[in-house]
């Protein structure tokens, strides 16, 4: 089973994002193929120098594939990302959703 986590919430607004990050980390520790797709205000954590850079960087370093929606980044004027994050789009998200044996969870 592959896990596709989609985070939409703003880390500066919702402490739930910390719990969600812990969940993603925990699933990865179980050895599952794990992807985190950041969309909407969740991409605020990716701006280089932002308070939540470490949280995101640690996920990437632990082997989680961290993707950020390019449309959401552009809307918020974010063009300098913390290392380990790939700019993505809806095309890739649809392809990830349709990969066999994928469990998709939105937050």
């Amino acid at each position: 089973m592959k896990y596709l986590f989609i985070e939409s919430r703003d880390p500066f607004e919702s402490t739930d994002t910390q719990f969600f990050s812990d969940l993603v980390k925990g699933v990865k520790k179980l050895g599952r193929e794990t992807t985190l797709f950041l969309v909407q205000n969740s991409v605020l954590s990716t701006r280089k120098g932002a308070k939540y850079n470490d949280q995101i960087a640690q996920l990437a370093q632990s082997g989680v594939t961290v993707l950020a929606d390019g449309f959401s980044l552009k809307e918020r004027g974010i063009d300098h990302l913390v290392e380990g994050i790939e700019v993505s789009n809806m095309d890739q998200l649809v392809q990830l959703l349709l990969e066999p044996e994928t469990k998709a969870i939105w937050h």
């Binding site: 939409s8 909407q40 809806m90 095309d91 998200l93 649809v94 392809q95 349709l98």
Partner: peptide, 18 residues
């Protein structure tokens, strides 16, 4: 913004032939 994202997702899925 969930509504916009959902509509973008549907648009892309249909565009890919799903």
């Amino acid at each position: 913004a969930n509504s916009t994202t959902a509509l973008r997702l549907i648009h892309t899925a249909l565009s890919q032939g799903n």
